[in-house]
Design a protein around this nucleic acid. Structure first.
Lengths: 221, 221
DNA sequence: GTTATCCTTACGGGAAACCGTAGCAGGGCG
DNA sequence: CGCCCTGCTACGGTTTCCCGTAAGGATAAC
């Protein structure tokens, strides 16, 4: 089993119960921090002392505080940690359930496991740690189904740019200028209309308002 | 100090740490359940046995499960509990931070305290329990500021109906029919336009899309 | 080099939304 | 009772959006 585990979790009660849950897994007493910056410092020091961590368990979102932090959230912490120690295993433990966010973590950040803070999270944490120890990926089961029923449109960068501009209040007819400035093509007004129509048709919507609400729900904006 | 405390929290790790946090407060070992229905049953039984609970600590949102529940969430649990035992003190412990939701809890459900699951939630829980024991209301400090910087428009039932219809995809010009059917007045098209304009003006928006995104963020829809 | 195809863009008619104005009903007050 | 004020509604002109069609440009196959 993993010898050295580091917990990065800002929520006091969660942090306590993480320590307790991991206590009976046969590793050393896990170490824990409440801030991302601290997490990175500890990882650095552990490498320097030639006792690097085996596993990092981290939340995604950290609250702001009087302590100004360089690293704002779990995602940044993961990239920073991976540059210091590429083989470090990462288990994300967060309340986030939006498929877009979780897909990104696995695909782009190459994390090893994700457990959502939910009903049986204690059991799943243990399963996840076991799986990761055996070099497998782990995703808590409550999320697997959520990803399956995903008959959604996959949003391109263009789609997201268009929707973001709408949310900013840019009139549709002015969006071509924005797209040209940011070298996003196609940038014609007709292409924007076509793209919006496609998205709405796939999702069964008729109005932009529905589309915005949907995008807010699944978390792409 | 409170003698008998009941915890209703579906998240395994949170539930554990709640028990641990409350352990050193001088009350009996707190009792805990993972489902709303169970919570209500326990409250009922406690009354029947003439050992009623003094305090209910509950989450707001409970996950669905193979166990079909009659009571879906914390809000319903609170109303059900209060009809059984009106003097029961209620402390809500949830991750929710949207002012609209929390205001509703204090004003309409008359809860005694709210602690948000956040950085120092352990300390705040203890403060909250003390405050409630002394018949005071308690709101965790991280939320007090959030409510102050609330220069937002207060949404009327009409506003919410209009926005909901937009999110449903109803064309603006058809919303009057909907309002008439539901006996919401005013129902004229001009009134709808006027109302939308007012909301957008107060919030500094120019387009409906911005308004929808904002409402999603603060959680009124 | 030519043709076919796909994608982007431009244009124009019609619908919806936006905005200002004016008429109408109800309530308070002298 | 008459007057004023407020809020709801109705109407027209302008802008924006919607949608179908057609022209331009790049790429790939022949």
């Amino acid at each position: 089993m993993f010898k050295r585990i580091l917990i990065a979790e800002d929520q006091e009660t969660q942090n306590i119960s993480l320590q307790k849950t991991l206590a009976d897994l046969g590793s050393e007493k896990p170490e824990y921090v409440y801030y991302c910056d601290d997490a990175l410092t500890w990882i650095k020091n552990a490498i320097k002392m030639e006792r690097p961590y085996d596993l990092l368990i981290t939340d995604l979102y950290f609250e702001e505080d009087h302590n100004r932090q360089k690293i704002a959230g779990g995602a940044e912490l993961i990239t920073a940690a991976k540059t210091l120690q590429p083989e470090l295993k990462i288990l994300v433990f967060s309340g986030e359930s939006k498929p877009a966010v979780i897909d990104m973590l696995f695909k782009e950040m190459n994390i090893d496991g994700y457990v959502r803070k939910a009903r049986h999270d204690g059991q799943y944490l243990k399963l996840a740690i076991n799986a990761i120890y055996n070099h497998k990926k782990y995703l808590s089961p409550d999320l697997k189904q959520a990803r399956k029923e995903n008959n959604s449109h996959d949003f391109t960068d263009l789609d997201i740019a268009i929707i973001s501009q709408l949310v900013e209040g840019t009139p549709q007819k002015n969006i071509p200028y924005y797209l040209q400035e940011h070298n996003i093509k196609p940038s014609g007004l007709s292409s924007i209309e076509k793209r919006l129509n496609l998205m709405k048709e796939v999702l069964g919507f008729s109005k932009n308002e529905q589309l915005i609400a949907y995008c807010k729900d699944i978390g792409i904006i």
